[in-house]
């Protein structure tokens, strides 16, 4: 049975954010104040069981991970990166998020805006509204997507290795491009290829090569359905593109 999670409409996000702008978002004011006047909160009307606890549990778990990296005190880039990785792993495995509910923007809007705005504010010291609204930039939604997409699968010894090998910029290149993000095998193939080849490149060129390669892949995907390739064929194709990108970037410099 699918656990139905609470949903916050986009208007609801705006209302909460506008009221919160006067004072910092803190854990103290979450439960009663925000939740009880949740006129923009809803649940799916059928198809599963409403579990009002689920969202709290997810929020508590994220808060718990954050506290391992300095929450609620100020954090540095390294701590935030570690939080991102651990939170991705945790979110990807949460049972409540193994359904279509996790594909809904309003579910994530509720988790960030109502359930754990304090964690969002800690992770993004001056968060823009898009961190609260559902979508690819939502503070937690983006972590969940990374987790489920780059998961090498249960039983794999290095199950979450890919999460660690991609820098934030590379993550954005992959996961903020819907055509790539929606195609999990392609996203994973890119990460796997990057893990193989990035050692060849000097640190200064890595970001440029990666960006160039992603663009070439997107152009290629427009005319060749990369998702229709078998796993090996796809991996070869992505590696080939990385080779071309490297060649061009080095020639250019």
């Amino acid at each position: 049975m699918v656990a139905l999670l609470s949903r916050l409409s986009p208007v609801g996000v705006q209302v909460v954010l506008s009221e919160a702008s006067e004072e910092p978002l803190s854990v103290a004011r979450i439960p009663q104040d925000l939740l009880n006047r949740g006129e923009h909160l809803s649940f799916a009307s059928s198809g599963g069981t409403v579990n009002r606890e689920s969202a709290f549990r997810i929020a508590a778990s994220l808060r718990n991970i954050a506290s391992q990296y300095g929450f609620p005190s100020e954090s540095d880039t390294q701590q935030r990166g570690a939080f991102d990785r651990d939170a991705s792993i945790a979110l990807a495995q949460m049972e409540e998020l193994l359904s279509g509910e996790a594909l809904r923007d309003d579910v994530w809007a509720c988790l960030t805006t109502v359930m754990a705005p304090d964690v969002v504010a800690w992770r993004f010291p001056s968060p823009s509204p898009e961190r609260f609204h559902g979508g690819v930039r939502n503070a937690f939604q983006r972590l969940w997507v990374r987790g489920v997409t780059l998961d090498r699968g249960e039983g794999n010894e290095r199950r979450w290795e890919l999460l660690g090998c991609l820098k934030e910029d590379a993550m954005v290149q992959i996961f903020e491009r819907p055509a790539i993000a929606a195609n999990a095998p392609l996203a994973r193939a890119i990460a796997e290829a990057w893990l193989l080849v990035k050692g060849r490149f000097s640190k200064g060129l890595r970001e440029l090569i990666f960006r160039t390669a992603i663009k070439m892949i997107r152009l290629r995907n427009e005319i060749v359905d990369l998702s229709a390739l078998e796993e090996d064929g796809l991996q070869c194709e992505v590696l080939r593109v990385f080779g071309n990108a490297e060649e061009w970037v080095e020639k250019e410099l």
Partner: peptide, 18 residues
């Protein structure tokens, strides 16, 4: 112009072959 993800994109950062 080039087309990627169903939309328009530029050749910036790409070789002149593109």
């Amino acid at each position: 112009h080039l087309v990627a993800d169903g939309g328009t994109t530029t050749t910036s950062g790409l070789s002149p072959d593109y």
